[in-house]
Amino acid sequence: MRKLLVFLPFIVFIGLGSVLYKQLGTNPEYMPSALIGKPVPDFKLVSLQTDTVQDQTSLPKQAYLLNFWATWCPTCEMEHAYLRTLAKQGIPIVGIDYKDDKHKAQQWLATRGNPYQWVLTDELGKFGVDMGVTGAPETFVVNSKGIIVYRYQGALDDRVWQEMKGYLK
């Protein structure tokens, strides 16, 4: 018992050290979404393609990705090709054109191709705030019951998709 007490500081040191070591290299900007487990909040947004006001009912009935993007966002440009490969695989993607210029956005899709089933414009970023978005790109997975189950901040790629696709059901 006494011997154990002598080694206690060492044990605490090892314990604390391993906890801190595990945190090394993790992204300090990672922040869990407060919306996991909740339905997509109500919205009324104008469609980029048809110029009509859309709400919840226009969202896909099966599981889908909700992708925040903008033409001012360089990372979105990087991500765009990957979104197109996902779209080709038949993954439904709803795009939210976040705090952007409508004409620039239309041009972007015309020149780069459109991976989105729907693109809704969130010009003031209000829907973004309701979704707890802090920038672009951000991608949410919404399951077939309409519940948000996963959020990723940053560009989608193969590595991210491996984890993300498990939630898409």
């Binding site: 300090p28 900007e29 922040m31 705090k99 970023g125 973004g128 705030v129 707890g132 978005v133 802090t134 920038g135």
Partner: peptide, 23 residues
């Protein structure tokens, strides 16, 4: 500020911080 490591909303120049100030 949700985008920043350790800055309050008053202090941050991030776009989202500005939006939230307006909110």
């Amino acid at each position: 500020c949700p985008k920043c490591q350790n800055q309050d909303l008053a202090d941050s120049q991030a776009g989202i911080a500005k939006d939230l100030r307006i909110q």
